[in-house]
């Protein structure tokens, strides 16, 4: 059982500022259902467009993810955008009287959502910007080297375990552990200044890809299948391979193979990326 502070428990049991704002000035969305936590954060400035007057959130996640989101909204209320910009994940954790080490990534998610919302307010496209800002190191959770370096520096992280606790990177398949070790060494200046090997930069981050796939299925594919009494379920995503299952009448439809290629795959190629291959479970 996690050892949560009373403040974490309070903000989990009685979260402040849950909901959405009509005509917000900035909206930031991070995480996804697949990752196990996701946060949609938005704020609205006062009439003079100086200070943050309203901040709201919606969170899917564990107790510390909900508490971190709630804390974030409380911290930034009344701040100018410039002040809010300086809020770190440690500020969120401190506000809550600390978080278990393994849950620090929840505070990082809060800071990332804030950053995304500020970028949105300034008219920047946050996801795209993040793409250009670095190479994906952890493909499971879509964490870039730029982000890793920043979190490592800000929180003075020393081990791969720390990095996983704060960013989730390396917490699933573990194949990026050597890269994480290199980045850690690089940041602490212990190792030679060689950069990790170049990786393709144009790749969609995994989170972005998962979000796009989920959205495309919801918007472009499911309605037409449901109209015929069928349905589709997203089972898993392995790289560019999207695994789906047909439900309802589709599950025993002799032409489901055609639907798979002509409808599902075509749509996903169109809206997500050309490399997508769709297979049935």
């Amino acid at each position: 059982m996690w050892d949560y502070t009373d403040k974490v428990r309070d903000h989990f049991l009685n979260p402040r500022n849950v909901g959405e704002i009509e005509a917000p000035d900035g909206v930031g969305e991070v995480g996804s259902l697949a990752c196990g936590d996701a946060l949609k954060f938005m704020f609205k400035l006062d009439n003079e467009k100086r200070k943050i007057a309203i901040a709201k959130f919606q969170t899917f996640g564990c107790a510390s993810a909900i508490a971190s989101s709630s804390a974030l909204t409380e911290i930034i209320l009344g701040m100018t955008v410039e002040e809010a910009e300086r809020v770190t994940n440690q500020d969120i954790a401190d506000f809550l009287g600390g978080l278990p080490q393994e849950k620090m990534h929840c505070s990082v998610m809060g800071r990332e959502a804030l950053e995304a919302a500020i970028a949105d307010y300034r008219g920047e496209a946050p996801a795209e910007k993040k793409e250009l800002e670095g190479n994906i190191v952890c493909t499971c959770f879509g964490v870039t080297d730029v982000e890793l370096k920043r979190v490592i520096k800000e929180n003075n992280l020393k081990s791969i375990e720390d990095v996983t606790n704060f960013t989730k990177a390396g917490g699933a398949c573990g194949t990026c552990h050597p890269d994480l070790a290199k980045i850690l060494a690089e940041v602490s200046g212990e190792a030679e200044k060689t950069l990790p090997a170049e990786k393709p930069t144009k790749k969609l981050s995994n989170i972005k890809k998962m979000q796009l796939i989920q959205e495309t299925i919801e918007r472009e594919i499911r309605p037409s299948l449901r109209a015929d009494g069928g349905d589709i379920e997203l089972i898993d995503i392995e790289g560019d391979k999207v695994i789906v299952a047909f439900r309802g009448v589709c599950s025993h439809c002799p032409s489901s193979e055609i639907t798979l290629k002509e409808n599902v795959e075509k749509k996903l190629k169109e809206f997500v990326t050309d490399d997508i291959i769709v297979v049935e479970e």
Partner: peptide
């Protein structure tokens, strides 16, 4: 079977083996 209860960041291997959607 959620990720957060195990500390492993991934949901249970049983749920994944059964192809339960991550939603």
């Amino acid at each position: 079977g959620s990720a957060c209860t195990s500390g492993s960041l991934e949901p249970s291997h049983v749920m994944r083996a059964m192809g339960v959607p991550f939603t």
